[in-house]
């Protein structure tokens, strides 16, 4: 990147490092950090929306609907999350392709599952075989976001469900006394008040979500873990101007520090938000996870 980087072999340690850390692949590595932050920024609201829908479903007065919501909440608890990640990525992909297959190729007569293959008609492939590279990457990222949102939505639903039940009974009774319908009372009284009760659980969830982002690697996205493994591996002079030994340890140390800083900053910010939100509220801000 710098002018003096023309012949790295002649440089001292410090300028060499400055050249090394500004090579093109390293910028891809830095861009991967943005990818992680982007994933968080998209997933958190989507997961919250999933969670809200889940909690509302679980509260439903129609029994089968409420079972659906409660089932969604509880299913993620007994099974390792990483199994869900690995499962959903393939399952969602096949689900989308199958739906498109049914819609786009109604006169396709062969079965979709043939032995060890999952075959849909070419028009139903996602993304299309002819699609440019960025569409494949985008689709992969999109699947990852949905997967994260599905899994963490279940956790969020559990937190919000608990928070809705923590809103003091008196508040809801007052709303009824004022003649509000069930729906009005829900939207005007319960929803504005539940956040204070939900915040400790949601902060916890945010931390968990941050710490789950390296799993993007398992979903096939080229994230920071991918790049750390790539860049850290031994490089011989034949293929690069910047030969070095096995530095993967240092790359992962950098990731470790990144995550420690990230969680620490989140912790401090969430703590502040919590004191701010509970100002004037007569709640015992308990560390309730659920």
């Amino acid at each position: 990147m710098f002018a003096y980087c023309a012949d790295p072999a002649t440089l001292d340690t410090l300028p060499w490092l400055s050249c090394f850390l500004t090579t093109g692949v390293h910028f891809a590595f830095y861009a991967a950090f943005i990818k992680v932050v982007l994933l968080l920024a998209i997933t958190a609201p989507v997961a919250l929306a999933f969670g809200f829908a889940g909690a509302m479903t679980a509260r439903s007065r129609i029994l089968p609907v409420s079972w659906l919501g409660k089932g969604y909440i509880s299913i993620v608890r007994g099974v390792p999350d990483i199994a869900f990640f690995l499962f959903f990525v393939i399952a969602l992909d096949q689900g989308f392709e199958y739906l498109r297959h049914v819609v786009l190729c109604p006169d396709w007569d062969q079965p979709v599952r043939q032995g060890n293959d999952f075959l849909v008609c070419p028009a139903a492939k996602l993304p299309l075989g002819t699609a440019p590279e960025w569409q494949h990457e985008f689709y992969g990222f999109f699947l990852a976001v949905i997967t994260f949102a599905l899994v963490f939505g279940a956790f969020a639903a559990n937190v919000l469900y608990g928070a809705m039940r923590s809103v003091p009974r008196g508040q809801m009774e007052t709303a009824e006394a004022y003649g509000m319908s069930r729906r009005q009372a829900f939207w005007r009284i319960m929803v504005p008040q539940m956040w204070v009760y939900a915040l400790p659980g949601l902060s916890n969830l945010w931390m968990v979500l941050v710490k789950a982002t390296p799993l993007l690697f398992l979903l096939g996205v080229e994230d920071i873990v991918y790049w750390a493994r790539e860049l850290g591996g031994t490089k011989t002079p034949r293929f690069t101007d910047y030969p070095h030994g096995d530095w993967r340890m240092w790359y992962f140390l950098a990731l470790l520090v990144f995550y420690l800083a990230f969680t620490r900053v989140s912790e401090v910010l969430l703590e502040r938000l919590n004191t701010r939100l509970s100002r004037g509220q007569s709640t015992i801000t308990k560390r309730a996870g659920a």
Binding site: K211, A212, T213, P214, L215, F217, V225, A228, R229, G232, D246, R248, M249, F252, L253, L255, L256, Y259, L260, T263, R264
Partner: peptide, 22 residues
């Protein structure tokens, strides 16, 4: 406690593996 609770286990595994490797 901060070190092990504040970072992802996944990264800890990777780091430890490459640390042991070197």
């Amino acid at each position: 406690i901060f070190l092990f609770r504040g970072s992802p286990l996944f990264i800890q595994f990777f780091f430890a593996y490459f640390l042991f490797l070197s």
